[in-house]
Design a protein around this nucleic acid. Structure first.
Lengths: 230, 230
DNA sequence: GCGGCACAAATCGTATACAATCACGGCTAC
DNA sequence: GTAGCCGTGATTGTATACGATTTGTGCCGC
């Protein structure tokens, strides 16, 4: 998730990424409790490592740690949800602009493969994986823009978006945004920076429009489900 | 530092903030080694806590943890320095715009007090404290904009800017930016969002112009100084 | 005298043990 | 029958101990 070369904490990082991926793929739902012993046993590490991973994720707002109560998958509030997408609207269009001017043929090829994978996942009914790949597409664009700092922010926002989608998605239809990604790809390939910026803006608007950011997302029900689903 | 309600890790958070403040005030210089035992002894906590704090700071890019070597105060590269200010240029003007539309009389009063403190610190020759307050001014504006997510990003960028200033500041003259802060305050008070946005943009440009982002900041010399200064 | 190797000291990485806190159950009293 | 209390179990918070890795030093050979 973190774009920087954080070589530290080999194992802790692995656990954090494992959990993060599970969250991205909606296999861990918002509100779920993350028991330290249990997570440790699953990943074959000690609580020390798990603790480090959880704190790391807490710093990315994917996990909330309540003192003496434990770690839970975060449940972004309505307000937080709006803020995250406002931040994305501020960062990503400009980043797409930069990416369009810098994208190399290799970058384009990579993005193409990415979209193909996305389609394959959708066709295979792996909605979780499709969702994660969909997010990775945005992160990849940020990487192409060659702005590690902004890319890191976008990475975090995309990750949080996954939680927001889990909570506030209107209907259960699959990600219908692959067309938008394809259009973006074309703009990048043509080095049409203005168009890429506009496409990204409208893509994000579309995404938000698929969310229901008016009511506070049935708090208890989802929680019970999640806990019961273990 | 972190705008969110991170109630976790009471003590670890305290150590992290202690170290962060020291970094902001340039009492800890880039490259300095942060020995776990030593820090633990200073703050009266175990290595466990120190470790947690250091990892937290590493996540904010204020310290770099090299595997099996330890934690060091980060030394932002030239490239990273440019990126940080590009990110600020992307985030802060728009944030100042929002802040101008939302600022309450209380907010204005708070900012005024802030500027006064800043001046007082400068007059008293406490350049470290002045520098920190100068950064806090930007964070306060982000807070007024009422966008916690973006404010958190700006907070991190401001913190990193402190390290960048420590490394790349051209001459040793004190922060001459208080005038810019005053002008910003007036724009906010007048709810002149456009002007606030422009002022923030030019303020950041001015800031960068005071840095020397052309040469890679004498790496060894500064490091030796820092380590020797302990 | 200089380069390279081996050993020793220091420091980090991880696991484990213990203490503190919280959640849940049953119990009693009203 | 219900509300409140207390004990027990489970889970987190912190410290410490031990193993792994690195860095510095001294010795040996060249």
């Amino acid at each position: 998730m973190n774009a920087m070369g954080k070589t530290t904490n080999q194992r802790g990082r692995a656990v954090a990424e494992g959990l993060a991926t599970a969250i991205h793929e909606h296999r861990l739902s918002p509100g779920m409790k993350l028991n330290e012993d249990e997570v440790g046993e699953i990943f074959g590490v000690s609580r020390t490592i798990v603790r480090s991973a959880l704190q790391s994720l807490s710093h990315e707002h994917l996990v909330v740690i309540e003192p003496n109560r434990g770690a839970f998958v975060a449940r972004p509030s309505l307000r937080e949800a709006r803020e995250v997408f406002e931040a994305r609207a501020l960062l990503e269009p400009r980043t797409a602009h930069s990416a369009a001017t810098r994208a190399t043929p290799e970058d384009i090829a990579l993005l193409k493969r990415h979209i193909d994978e996305e389609h394959a996942a959708i066709d295979a009914g792996e909605t979780g994986r499709a969702l994660r790949l969909s997010g990775d597409f945005h992160i990849e664009i940020a990487r192409i823009a060659d702005q590690a700092t902004i890319a890191a922010f976008i990475g975090q926002l995309v990750a949080r978006s996954s939680l927001i989608i889990a909570l506030y998605w209107r209907r259960r239809k699959a990600t219908c945004e692959s067309h938008a990604h394809h259009a973006l790809l074309e703009a990048l390939e043509a080095h049409d920076a203005e168009r890429a910026e506009e496409l990204m803006t409208s893509h994000l608007v579309d995404l938000v429009s698929l969310l229901d950011l008016t009511e506070p997302a049935d708090a208890p029900s989802s929680l019970r489900e999640a806990l019961g689903a273990r």
